[in-house]
């Protein structure tokens, strides 16, 4: 497998002078096409920081990020915007749906931004909505649907452009377990059937157990990583809990 994402010696320092905070320290890793990677770590470990850097929303203090062989540091403002539009998809904990738009309009927005023809837009939106089981909600406004449905809408919006790379920051954080499982299973299906590459930040061991590989971050540094391999989801869940305990030394702190 070729490397889709390659990160080298990434550092992120927030603030200045005595206020400085070293949020990421020399983070390096590689992610191949078609992987489903989980990022775990306690609160404040630097998970969101890492994700924002990879998603080109924020820039690193030092280090390089290569996506599909391109160093994103070499791109200007507009090129980055185009890059995000064409290759990346995001799903966030608080959905970030636009409340003045219907579910359909929310989902089609990335396609409209990419100036796709209306007929194509119509077809793609219907497809992805069916995949996430929200095809009957398309005419509704965000305030008329439940949290799980909102998150699935947000996921549909992130995936409708069929991005190379999908980033999700605690996508199940605000969901009940049923909705969370639904969403996670959609991710697995996307990963297996469409071989989408997914990186998901979570601090929930249950959510993480759907991934195929998990990297642990502790105090801004990569601590360790584990692979699902041939284990069942249940077995993997146990391994995750164990690892968490080893990494942080305190199980209760994390769950």
């Amino acid at each position: 497998m070729e490397a889709l994402l390659h990160v080298q010696q990434l550092n992120k320092i927030y603030g200045q002078g005595t206020q400085q905070f070293h949020a990421l320290k020399d983070v390096s890793f590689t992610m191949a096409q078609g992987e489903f990677v989980g990022v775990m770590g306690s609160s404040g470990a630097g998970k969101s920081t890492l994700l924002n850097l990879l998603a080109t929303i924020d820039s690193p203090t030092s280090g390089d990020i290569f996506i599909d062989g391109t160093n994103i540091a070499s791109m200007n403002h507009d090129a980055l915007a185009d890059f995000r539009r064409d290759h990346l998809g995001f799903i966030f904990q608080d959905y970030n749906l636009l409340d003045s738009l219907t579910v359909r309009e929310n989902i089609l927005l990335p396609l409209a931004i990419a100036k796709k023809p209306a007929a194509v837009i119509q077809k793609k939106v219907d497809e992805i909505a069916t995949l996430f089981g929200i095809e009957t909600l398309l005419h509704k406004y965000p305030y008329e649907i439940s949290g799980g449905q909102k998150q699935r809408t947000a996921a549909s919006r992130a995936l409708v452009t069929e991005p190379k790379l999908i980033f999700a920051d605690e996508p199940t954080g605000a969901l009940d377990s049923k909705s969370a499982t639904d969403l996670l299973q959609s991710f697995v299906r996307l990963n297996e059937e469409k071989s989408s590459t997914i990186m998901m930040v979570t601090h929930d061991a249950y959510a993480a157990s759907f991934c195929r590989r998990i990297v642990f971050i502790q105090d801004g540094q990569l601590a360790t990583e584990i692979f699902k391999g041939t284990k069942t989801r249940k077995q993997f869940f146990e391994v995750i809990l164990q690892t968490l305990a080893e990494v942080s030394g305190d199980l209760h702190d994390v769950i």
Binding site: A55, A81, R84, R85, L88, F90, I113
Partner: peptide, 8 residues
């Protein structure tokens, strides 16, 4: 959110 979606 729009910025993240890649709006120029």
């Amino acid at each position: 959110a729009l910025r993240k979606m890649g709006v120029r």
